[in-house]
């Protein structure tokens, strides 16, 4: 293992120490060492919480900050945070107007959030959830309750966070976050596996010269293993799965998020984006917001996720609203395309 670590069993603690120091302008520690919150308070508005396993930097704590997420529950590498951490995150984010918990569809997270909600209710904190399920490869259409949440979660946090920052009610925040994720579809391609530092060897394989279409953020099996192809063919294979699912059609305006999985050079993400843009243009679909980079990674996995969000005026306004986080910054009046 060629890694920059001290103690394999304490990578989360050691990472948090550095993260909190490096970004003290944006985030602060709390009394629970597994809960990080944004600088500033949520007094008089809806708070936004998320959480998940570690190893996905900049997700999840990298999206803490003005206009996005207020508190994050931090788990072990690839493992759900505790119910206690979610509960403390709810407490941190509660400004008296309720808390929107926007997280991804994984069985551990579902259970811990449900338990934490039960406890929060006893304290009189109102919590509502939106569960991201944008990964179209993780279950067939029509079984969306089984689909996992992947990079589309970032757009859900951006939209929900913007709505919360605008002073909207909990109902309004939940409604727009739900719409955001319903309009968002993702798919991944994996080129090499990743290794949990505490385990020391990869617990799944991707053969040299092959690619796994539909791979999950923790190496969950995809829908097909193919011989490695060019960026052009990869873009085509990904769009072939995503486009019919929404469905996206001629005249649509979309946001596109291309995220590396950790070890793929960012240069290659732009190569893929160029192919995606061209193919969408041919179909009459216009990209009006774009995000390219390592937005949601899986340790040192090689590969990429492609996320498309079908836009309307409300979603566009929320994406364009001000945000200041480690992973995503947005300045009012400016947008990327």
């Amino acid at each position: 293992m060629q890694r920059i670590i001290n103690r394999p069993d304490y990578v989360v603690e050691d990472m948090l120490k550095g993260f909190l120091k490096a970004h003290s302008d944006l985030v602060v520690a709390t009394s629970n060492s597994r809960v990080v919150r944004a600088v500033g308070d949520t007094e008089g508005r809806v708070g936004v919480v998320t959480g998940g396993g570690s190893g996905h930097k900049p997700a999840f704590i990298g999206y803490l900050g003005r206009g996005m997420v207020d508190a994050v529950a931090v788990g072990e590498v690839f493992s759900s945070p505790t119910a206690g951490a979610f509960l403390d995150a709810f407490r941190e984010a509660n400004g008296g107007k309720g808390v929107a918990c926007l997280y991804g569809n994984y069985s551990g997270d579902n259970m811990n959030v449900k338990l934490a909600m039960k406890m929060a209710k006893r304290e009189g904190i109102e919590i509502r959830t939106v569960v991201a399920n944008d990964d179209v490869a993780s279950a067939p259409k029509g079984q969306s309750e089984k689909r996992r949440g992947v990079a589309g979660e970032i757009l859900m946090w951006k939209v929900g966070g913007a709505k919360a920052a605008s002073g909207a009610t909990l109902d309004e925040v939940i409604a727009v976050a739900q719409k955001a994720i319903d309009q968002t579809k993702s798919i991944g391609i994996g080129l090499s596996p990743c290794t949990l530092p505490a385990v020391g060897h990869p617990n799944f394989e991707i053969q040299e010269g092959t690619m796994e279409v539909g791979i999950g953020h923790h190496g969950e099996p995809g829908i097909a293993v193919h011989t490695l192809e060019s960026a052009n063919v990869m873009a085509e294979k990904m769009l072939d799965v995503i486009l019919p699912d929404q469905p996206f059609s001629e005249g649509d305006e979309v946001a596109v998020l291309v995220s590396g999985l950790g070890a793929t050079p960012v240069m290659e993400l732009y190569i893929l984006f160029g192919e995606v843009e061209e193919k969408l243009k041919e179909k009459g679909i216009r990209i009006s917001r774009s995000y390219v980079g390592n937005y949601f990674t899986s340790l040192e996995m090689m590969g990429v996720t492609l996320t498309l969000m079908k836009l309307d005026d409300e979603l566009k306004a929320c994406l364009d609203a001000e945000a200041d986080t480690v992973g995503l910054k947005s300045f009012p009046g400016k947008h990327s395309v």
Binding site: G75, E76, T82, A85, G108, L115
Partner: peptide
């Protein structure tokens, strides 16, 4: 189990 163990087993056995 509720406060220290995450994943799936913390909440299941904790409950």
């Amino acid at each position: 189990l509720f406060s220290e163990i995450g994943g799936s087993m913390g909440p299941i056995y904790g409950t």
